[in-house]
Design a protein around this nucleic acid. Sequence first.
RNA 1: AGGCGAAUAGCUCAGCUGGUCAGAGCACCUGCCUUACAAGCAGGGGGUCGCCGGUUCGAACCCGGCUUCGCCUACCA
Length: 1063
Amino acid sequence: MFTELAKTYDPAGTEPRVTERWLAAKAFAAAPDARTQRYVIMMPLPNVTGALHMGHAMDNVMQDLLIRWHRMQGDNTLWQAGTDHAGIATQAVVEKRLKELEGKTRHDVGREGLVARIWEWKEVCQKRIVRQQQAMGCSADWDRTRFTMDPVCARAVRHVFFRMFREGLVYQGDRMVNWDCALQTAVSDDELYKATVQGAFWYLRYPVIDPRPGEPTHVVVATTRPETMLGDTAIACHPEPAAAARASGVEVPAERIALLETIARMARDGRRVRLPLAGRELPILLDEWARPEMGSGCVKITPAHDPNDYDVWQRHRDRIGALVVLNPDGTMNAAAGRFAGLDRFAARQQVVAALATEGLVERIEERAIEVDHSDRSKTVIEPLLSRQWFVHMGDVPGGITMGRGTGREFRSPGLAAAAIDAARPGWRSPGGRNVTFHPDPERYAKVYTAWLAEKRDWCISRQLWWGHRIPVWSGSFTGTQLLALAPILREQERRDDAAAWVTFTGGRRATPGQALDALERGEEAREGRALVNLCFRDERAENAVAPLLRSAGLAPDPDVLDTWFSSAIWPFSTLGWPDPATAQIDPGQSPLASRDGHPDALAYYYPGSCLVTGRDIITLWVARMTLMGLYVLGDVPFTDVFLHANIQDGKGERMSKSKGNGVDPIDIIERYGADAMRYVLCEMQTGTQDIRLPVQVLSPFGGEVLELAALAPGSTVGTYRDPKTGREFDVAGNRTDLPTAKTFSERFDVGRGFCNKLWNAARFALMNLEGTGFTPLDCAALPGEDRWILSRLARSAAEAQRALQEYNPSAALGALREFFWSELCDWYLELIKPRMRDAGRAPVARQVLAATLDQTLRLLHPFVPFVTEALWERLREVAPKRGITEEFADSELLVRAAWPRPEAAWRDTGLEERFALLHEVCTAAREIRARYALAPGAKVAATLRASGASAAALHSLADALRHMAGLEPLQIAAEFAKPKDAATAVVRDTELFVLGVVDVDKERGKLGKELEQLLGRIRGTEGKLANPGFLAKAQPEVIERERGLLAELHSRAEAVRRALAGL
RNA sequence: AGGCGAAUAGCUCAGCUGGUCAGAGCACCUGCCUUACAAGCAGGGGGUCGCCGGUUCGAACCCGGCUUCGCCUACCA
């Protein structure tokens, strides 16, 4: 029995119940079956660092939209959910809490203790993330939820690393890294941000050793970090100072050029300088890095603490070395002599002071300096030389085998090269796929390719405790020691689950066998040193030999892998690679192994379909996932990459919680409902540019709505001032001493309005649908408005389908909104109201209405799943059988219902045209009614002058016109005298006269204005047609159109003139 | 500094290969509590399409320059 719906839609009361039904029915679960059409999205896994923000909401909603759409189309649809351990980000968060709550550092609790705490944090955080995603309506397969450090993924990480290690694609080397002294780890370039700090250029004087007459006694170098001078191993001067100065375009004083030329000559002469404080002799290098126009023109070279100096070192390795003067914690090390133990900033002061007493500080230039900071610890980054693991991105001699052992093998010159190929339009993998970016293929392919083309090796080691341990044992040995280890090395080399490399000091890398042979043959000196790296594929095997290795002088690598290493293999690690049958999943999870004769999850769901993300992730993720997929499985992990817009605040700035300009999706869901949020996110997603979402906040003092972008900032980040009271409040949640206020955005009003409209349209329908049955109907025999709404429905469904295929959610939703609101609600529902009261005509109207509502709910479901699912339930109760010519396939849950098929038979372009005329005449009549302030319910007499096709159209739709415009009685005739007392409107080739309401002045004003407009357009069109160039060069059909337009304008102007004359 | 992109109504955005393309929603104004919905209905006003040139019979759209903003990459002794 139908119980009437509430008058307004209540998302808070509806959504949890709908979620429960979905989850209870396991409506999102995916399992391999006989279907060949599959659709797979691997969720860009959120970090377990905290709550989701609006960017996640956008990303998740876009994915859910595609997933629900494909699921309804009958594809076997998998949305793989999960979270990322996010190494450094998570460790930093937990360490910070540890400090705040317990006052302890990670060293107080130890490695195991810290990792245990992070696991606890992860459990809490992952649960919260899943709850948030479910609140948004995400229809991911929760029974397959993975975590990058769970056993399934961890095994895959080891196997991939092992394969790369054995094939020589990962290596260990000394490189310049961004060192975070607080977290004591290297961080990647992506984890840096620039900040301006107050600093100075210190100009330091290095004494020249034994200067000759005419030569300077000192060489001046400038630095922003004086303490690093303790690590100087050279100074440098440009080889051609005069020429370089000219080329720079900067005015350089002649004296300086002369001085630099002298220094360059001294360098060629082999003159040296003495490093103050340390006393070392330093050579003067000639290197183009020293730019005459900058600083003093000469530059100190500190290879271990400056990336550019590192490059200089690489060019002069035969002459200079590198000296590390910093400890991992940011204090000076023993190499810093008497400054050892001092913090880097304290050392800076003291070095300067010491130099000053020796008269070696020429001058100090105070100024603001841009310095790299760690995004994780917010401290100043130190460039530092250290030993790290790298993935070799460039080409390798002989190339590499991609997809080894998969049956999709192919050769590629290198990893980056393979990933670049994958995005070429003409390229195809052995599986026949490539990667295409949407919605702007060329633009984003360029970004992707440009980044990969640099082929910069990927630093994959992190000095953290939280993450996948690097499964390598290492040791440094002399040749003699190495020979003693031969039995162990040779044994490990024989195993297929272990691999080893020996790197000699000279840089030569060899397998243990080759290395031992080389030593025995004397190609490598026995007193020289060699680095041994030994990698084990399986953890158990590694543990078994660990004691042996330890006794042999090898030690396990203390570092963990970069988070992106495990994220990059997410598309297949989640599915159980390398062997789904033996993957160790949690109790209750969907199996990965083959079942019921169907393929296993990996074989069935890899390669996937689409990656949905923001364009800032192109290099971080898309490139690395593609590369790993090709390398390990011989095929791309997805064929489509959907890059959605990012959300900015009202000022066009990136939203950020810490900045206090963000909006929390959970606040929005509470305030507006999840569907409202989804509606607006989809509507904003037009594909061309980033989106501004103006942010508002309720004043905690006065309660009024304030525009965040217009507020005066408060005393700290994330605080603002109430304009009325001048008092401060906090929105970022980092101040406990101030009142807090939740941010929101009025943009979401639109979404709430839409859901409410949908609710009420359904409410009306359901009130009238009691007892609706299904009888096959003859489409052609239906009343005009029925055929019209079905035609519009079919057209809108096709439009939405096309827009979704083009990754344009906004256009798809726009088409559906237009159909639902402006056609179904504004016209069709009104048109059938009289039929609903007429027992004879009601059944067909009911059946068509039920069918239309059925299709509308299906079409809108991917956008607004909750309200549509709730209404679907009621619709099925009231009208269990629905359809027009044949019955639609039913489904208990809308989420599993079939997507509407394109019904070509419903389309009737001529009828739609006739209705368009009806709408125009109706609008004209309403305009007259409004102009003369006629009561809405009052009927008014009218006549229509129309002939030909228009007359036929209006005759056929006269009832609708009477009803919708309140025209009664209404006459339609080709010719009659215009009544004196009639208000007039000219619509296309017809004239409408509304009788008995005329106000001559009003009419004259209105018609006069219209005539003026028409005459203006006539003049314009005539001018065009009088232009010989236009007639000669424009396309004939364009000229024809203009002529037709001119004729129409003339006849309308004539009609308006007649109306004016008749006043 | 280089690369990519954007600038259209008060706000947020559409506008396909140049020709009924100047649009939508919100906001605003007017009138309506018309038995689905006032979170609604009906009607209305509002834009020199960032600026300057060029190409073209014709430019919001194509080209060049400029201004402003955003993103990415690099760099500053």
